[in-house]
Design a protein around this nucleic acid. Structure first.
Lengths: 233, 233
DNA sequence: CGGCAATTTGACTATCCTCAACAGGGGTGG
DNA sequence: CCACCCCTGTTGAGGATAGTCAAATTGCCG
């Protein structure tokens, strides 16, 4: 029996494009791997040798300048795909933000498999198009939004993406929403193109205004989603 | 005879994945269209109804906030692909920066055709992955670079992309390089996440330092590419 | 209870934005 | 053919937002 049968993301990952025997074949060329928080799977600028599906945990995609400035260019959640198929070098590093479990493939093996399975390539294309849309929307935030708009937008997007779609309740209950942050303040700054001090000040201000609560450094409670939406610009 | 046989981007566009009879079939569902500079092909937020290949000219992809701030999220050159296949709404508008000629398809027709031609989908996937890489690199610029680094990076990228690869000379001659800008100052500002005044001041400064020359508003001559690279961060 | 790292807060500064006036140059009409 | 006009771009002055540097605080872990 393939370990995929028990996989919690089996029906949401790109694997969902495949039937039983195909899954079996894909499983044969992949393997599970556990990552500790802070551990990297792929480094910026190296040849693309690995691709992977995220089973559990949150990872960041990041790139930086020579003098040490960093920008997080993407955040990857369970069931999402990591890596650069079809040649080239990886333009960004991939690092676990939390402990994580991934299903990795040698890129050459994955490429060959994908080319023989158009349904898989189609799924990957749909994902990639969606990711491109999301990334472009983020450019508006980076290029044109103020610090307060940036943090508000960040918290709203996080609250959407941390809740997998169709998870039990179809309708959103209006009460306060608790979020576990997979990011340090520095990492939030690196997502938003700000400094850690500015991020901290914006958190403090939102809390003072009663829009959010901060029970601990790694938790946020959204008390007033409408106010947050208004702040997001 | 299909009009594709005479198409100048026939061998560089995604069409290059197809053989003669397939091209014929694709041609049957598409049509040429001319755009004047400033004319829009797709509007932000509308249902995705069109996709297209660019034959000639330069187009921008842009999105904005409710209060009128704009961010250009992509620039499209000849042989490149436009639009959002496989459902959803278009997250950004598409507008011609110069007079342009495109080869348009109804999205539904294109989707159906693509699903029956895995080679085409594969080509589209490679393109989309490349575009995602480029877009993510641009996020570093938007989030972390200073105004002077932004403009220098912009001019360098422009000089690369305005010169199609393998165009006559394989090696780069070291002399000054002349660029025709398909952008107004405002559009450059919208690409870089700056104001028009800041862009103008940076141009003036680069000219004063002898790094570039500005024969007219729509022309730039790169006098010292190394200095520009150094400025780009 | 101490030690250490992450975060917050404070004071000051720099970069970039805003508002305003001016300049240039391409096209039109006299 | 020249003068004028309008749009785009440039320049200038002043201000605001976010960055920098430094110190205080928190809270986590042994």
């Amino acid at each position: 029996m393939s370990s995929c049968d028990l996989c919690v993301v089996r029906n949401r990952a790109i694997c969902s494009a495949l039937d039983g025997s195909e899954i079996e074949a894909l499983n044969a060329i992949g393997r599970r791997r556990n990552l500790k928080a802070g551990e990297s799977l792929i480094w910026e600028g190296e040849d693309s040798v690995l691709v992977a599906n995220v089973i559990e945990g949150v990872l960041k995609l990041s790139t930086g300048t020579e003098d040490g400035r960093e920008q997080i260019v993407g955040v990857v959640y369970p069931s999402e795909f990591i890596g650069r198929p079809f040649g080239g070098t990886s333009g960004h590093g991939v690092t676990a933000l939390t402990d994580a479990r991934v299903c990795v493939f040698a890129r050459r093996d994955f490429d060959a498999f994908a080319r023989e399975h158009p349904k898989l390539e189609h799924k990957l294309l749909e994902r990639t198009l969606g990711e491109l849309d999301r990334t472009r929307r983020w450019m508006l935030l980076l290029g044109r939004k103020s610090a307060s708009e940036k943090l508000a937008s960040f918290l709203l997007e996080l609250s959407e993406r941390m809740t997998p779609v169709g998870c039990e309740t179809d309708f959103e209950e209006p009460g306060p929403k608790r979020l576990e942050l997979p990011f340090s303040r520095q990492q939030i700054a690196d997502v938003l193109g700000l400094t850690i001090e500015t991020v901290s000040r914006q958190f403090t201000r939102l809390k003072a205004e009663g829009v959010i609560d901060l029970p601990s450094r790694r938790e946020v409670v959204i008390l007033d989603p409408d106010a947050l939406t208004a702040e997001a610009g």
